[in-house]
């Protein structure tokens, strides 16, 4: 009987190891260790053995049964693993095919630059204020210390709607409107569209400016220079240098123009800066006491500074756009680059 048990076990083992699927395995399970199995048959024959051999053989039978159960479990896991791998294989895809794109649009480069400038100044405590494009001469000229016969009125060609109604030539108009409404402290920037009657590769009849005005006790020229330096470094990076040149604006005294070192060649001289190493950024100065007086702000108590930056110009410098007209052509192939 021992020999028979060995034979059954060996056979069971080889059949189980070769089983190909779960149903086959279940059949083998009932064949070898089920109720009507070969092992059970041997179990029933145990009574034919001599009494003293019975416990020993019974033990062996049990061990064989457990081993077969173990082999079945091992094989079952193997078959499941194979089946799972086959499933994965059938689900495999070509991962080089293109993904589904969510087409996101884009802001206009002028908007991008404008928002960046606004955010820098907002973070420095400025309020953003806006005003009308269609203005009167008072806010555009008179209040800015430019009386009717002043030569500065010829400096720019102005679009007129009526005799004294015009398209603003600068957003300084908003500064006047703010000072009419509020006493200092004032700390604002005013971004917006401005208009001058000229049209070529470097001049557009409509352009964008951001002007700043700070009025309070103790505001001085160093504050002005510092804030512009700070702004330039935040906008263009720490490598950029600035310089101030004396200039003339009717509403500031002293007046200056600010240059930044060329963002392309960093001052060595290139086509962008026309070999000078410098790019003109905007005008600045201390608010002329006359302007304060006109707006009933005490020029002895308060001082202030103002400056203006050309947004389109900054966008052109920042993105290396050669022709201002591209900004208003709205070619989708151009816009999608931002």
């Amino acid at each position: 009987m021992q020999a028979e048990l060995d034979k059954v076990y060996q056979k069971a083992r080889s059949e189980i190891e070769q089983a190909k699927n779960i149903p086959e395995l279940l059949n083998l399970k009932s064949k070898y260790i089920g109720k009507k199995s070969l092992l059970n048959k041997l179990m029933k024959q145990i009574s034919s053995l001599p009494k003293e051999e019975r416990p020993e053989f019974g033990k062996k039978l049990n061990i064989a049964k457990n081993k077969i159960q173990e082999l079945i479990t091992i094989r079952e896991n193997q078959i499941q693993e194979i089946q799972y791998k086959n499933e994965l294989k059938s689900e495999a895809i070509d991962v080089t095919m293109p993904g589904r794109k969510r087409k996101i649009g884009n802001l206009h480069p002028i908007t991008l630059v404008m928002q960046e400038i606004e955010d820098i100044f907002i973070s420095m405590g400025f309020d953003v204020v806006e005003g009308p494009d269609i203005e009167d001469e008072f806010h555009n000229f008179d209040a800015l210390n430019t009386p009717p016969d002043h030569p500065a009125r010829n400096l720019s060609d102005t679009f007129y709607l009526d005799n004294d109604i015009l398209l603003r030539t600068q957003t300084s108009t908003v500064q006047i409107r703010t000072m009419e409404k509020y006493q200092p402290p004032i700390k604002i920037i005013s971004p917006g569209s401005c208009y001058r009657n000229e049209n070529d590769a470097t001049h557009s009849p409509m352009f964008h400016q951001v002007e700043a005005l700070v009025v309070d006790e103790g505001i001085n020229f160093v504050d002005l220079r510092d804030i512009l330096n700070d702004f330039v470094k935040k906008m263009f990076g720490d490598r950029i240098q600035t310089r101030f040149r004396p200039h003339f604006f009717p509403f500031t005294e002293p007046s200056a123009e600010m240059d930044i070192s060329c963002v392309k060649c960093f001052g060595k001289g290139c086509n962008l800066c026309k070999g000078t190493g410098w790019l003109e950024m905007g005008g600045a100065g201390m608010v002329d006491p006359n302007v304060f007086e006109m707006l009933k702000i005490d020029p002895e108590k308060y001082t202030g500074y103002a400056f203006g930056l050309g947004i389109d110009r900054i966008a052109m410098v920042k993105y290396n756009i050669p022709d201002m007209r591209m900004l208003f052509e709205n070619d989708i192939r151009f816009l999608k680059q931002f």
Partner: peptide
């Protein structure tokens, strides 16, 4: 002095348009 509500709403509207696939133009 700033009208924050309108200022940031305009920005938000622009953002929504961009998220919906629009390119901003300026004329």
């Amino acid at each position: 002095i700033m009208d924050r509500k309108r200022f940031y709403l305009r920005r938000k509207l622009k953002r929504i348009m961009v998220e919906n696939g629009f390119s901003e133009i300026r004329n």
